[in-house]
Write a protein that binds this DNA or RNA. Structure first.
Length: 251
DNA sequence: AAAGTTCCCAACCGCGGGAAC
DNA sequence: CGTTCCCGCGGTTGGGAACTT
């Protein structure tokens, strides 16, 4: 990377994780949990900073992580949620079981953003030159934690205990019903929200909520209100329901 | 087959917020 | 009440894989 490592990481290892490190981390967390990320690497005997351990666990080793290509349902859900929430990847990830914020962020920047941009252009032919270039990772996940096993010098092994984790979740994938429903619109390649939807939806919510909730509050990213999550849930639910209605109206 | 280009993703960094002291 | 510590988030990027010429 370009930036110099911060001093606290002097002497600590950086870069791709080895299978041994993965194993050590998983074993330690399975045994002791991860109540203190900062202390964890020392306790586990890893030459990594706590941040790095946390990231590795969250984004790769966690047992409930679902690997593999995103389904069109998931992609549509991301697009919808992003339209509502903006770049709040962690919030979006919370709505997509088994997906990490990092993964969603990557998908957004590499696929969905371009897809939306191209769809917004009049006859733009922006179909990606490469599609599904990699084998379904869900399958390769059985082989190892990374989709590019020998990609990194330090990655001598493609296997890590982490794999045990992803195999089951990769097959029994089931989205929340609301997302499945929104998937009904997934058959269309492009997803767009027209203004009438927002005016109707927002108008409805303002009319119906006697709470005096304001739109600016609702979308205020850093609303410190303890109820902000509830409000977010409200909007997500509302949006999903609206999506259902839209889908139904198309039938 | 080789070289060049594009794309993807794992991992890093800095920052902000909350908890603990 | 102010300071310090830690966690989590979002933005960014390097390196390798995939694809094109």
């Amino acid at each position: 990377m370009v930036r110099a490592p911060c001093c606290e990481k002097m002497g600590l290892k950086r870069g791709p994780w080895t299978a041994e490190e993965d194993m050590t981390l998983v074993a330690h967390i399975e045994q002791h949990g991860h109540s203190n990320w900062r202390a964890l690497p020392k306790q586990a005997g890893l030459l990594r900073c706590g941040k790095s351990c946390r990231l590795r666990w969250i984004n790769y080793l966690r047992p409930d992580i679902k690997r593999g290509n995103f389904t069109s349902e998931e992609e549509d859900a991301i697009i919808q949620l992003h339209a509502m929430l903006g770049n709040r990847w962690s919030t979006i990830a919370a709505r997509l079981p088994g997906r990490t914020d990092n993964e969603i962020k990557n998908v957004w920047h590499t696929h969905l953003k371009k897809r939306l941009e191209s769809s917004s252009k009049p006859s733009g032919q922006a179909a990606p030159k490469r599609k599904a270039k990699k084998p379904a990772v869900s399958a390769s996940a059985l082989e190892g934690p990374t989709s590019k096993p020998a990609s990194s010098p330090g990655q001598s092994l493609s296997m890590s205990p982490g794999k045990s984790l992803s195999t089951s979740s990769a097959t029994d994938y089931s989205m929340a019903s609301s997302l499945e429903n929104t998937g009904s619109s997934s058959s269309s390649e492009e997803f767009q929200i027209d203004d009438s939807f927002w005016s109707e939806t927002l108008g409805m919510s303002v009319d119906n909520s006697g709470s005096g909730m304001e739109i600016s509050d609702t979308f205020g990213v850093d609303s410190a209100s303890p109820s902000s999550n509830d409000e977010m849930d409200f909007w997500v639910t509302l949006f999903m329901q609206a999506g259902d209605m839209q889908s139904l109206s198309q039938i």
